[in-house]
Design a protein around this nucleic acid. Structure first.
Length: 265
DNA sequence: GCCAACGTTGGC
DNA sequence: GCCAACGTTGGC
């Protein structure tokens, strides 16, 4: 289900955040929210981003919007060096960094909140109860979407509870299916419906995830911020720098540090 | 409910 | 391409 989470921006659609819907893809009702979610309606999730996944960005990546010039910018593929010739070769790391494994952090709202009349609540327990891969839908921010599109099967991600009493990382999940169109965007009844996304040219994406673990004790936002102080292990963590991004990158060092913290708690 | 951060829109 | 207005995210 959906979760939403994404970010911002977008308009229209955007709002929703997190949520997700389940429906579309299948099944479930919307759980929505979950993912990102955020408050308002649209919020989150969906929309945002473009660019590469990586950053936050704003651009839409590919699709971006039509509008003005802005759009496109992005290099879609990587910029590679122009130099090409000569040296360049090493460039290929292709996709990301090379070999390093990539980790992520996805936000979902564990408390009930209506988006377009649908409850977008989606907690780690909701995910743990699923018997089928869950589509992380509702992302309506290009930056968040771009991160979804950069995910590879087998990548691991933290499940973060947002817009709730105790915000924080509550467990982990695995990306079991790479991105595919977020069909919930085309459903007027879905929490994060986006009239600007056409079925023949889907604007938003989902990835399917599977529950892996629930921490005995959540790592709260307060804890995360303390570990994000200058000189500390999480000082450059994307989620602390771009607080509105519902789908962010986690480095291998950050992942390991946090998994260690979770164990001792 | 408030509000800070920040992304998007859209005029110029 | 700049930038002001506006809207959203999401913690508190």
């Amino acid at each position: 289900m959906p979760k939403r989470k994404s970010a911002p921006a977008e308009e229209g659609t955007q709002r929703r955040r997190s949520v997700r819907i389940a429906s579309v893809n299948g099944t479930e009702p919307p759980k929505a929210g979950a993912k990102l979610a955020t408050k308002k309606t649209q919020k989150t999730t969906k929309r945002s981003k473009p660019e590469e996944a990586v950053s936050s960005g704003s651009e839409p990546e590919s699709e971006p919007q039509p509008k003005k010039s802005r759009t496109a910018k992005l290099p879609k593929t990587k910029p590679e060096p122009k130099s090409t010739k000569a040296k360049a070769k090493p460039p290929i790391p292709s996709v990301d960094s090379g070999s390093e494994k990539t980790y992520w952090l996805l936000k979902a709202e564990p408390e009930s909140r209506l988006e377009n009349g649908v409850d977008v609540k989606f907690s780690i327990d909701d995910l743990a109860a699923k018997t089928e891969p869950e589509p992380w839908d509702g992302i309506r921010a290009y930056a968040a979407r771009n991160n979804l599109r950069a995910m590879k099967k087998g990548d691991l991600a933290f499940f973060y509870h947002s817009n709730c009493k105790e915000p924080g990382i509550v467990g982990t999940m695995e990306i079991v299916q790479e991105h595919s169109p977020d069909l919930s965007a085309h459903d007027p009844k879905a929490p994060y419906y986006d009239a600007s996304s056409k079925p023949e040219d889907p604007k938003w994406s989902v990835v399917h995830v599977k529950f892996r673990s629930k921490f005995a004790t959540p790592i709260t936002l307060k804890d995360l911020r303390a570990m994000g102080a200058p000189g500390k292990p999480l000082e450059n963590m994307q989620m602390l720098k771009q607080t509105r991004l519902s789908v962010s990158r986690v480095t291998a060092a950050e992942w390991e540090h946090l998994m260690g913290v979770a164990e001792e708690m």
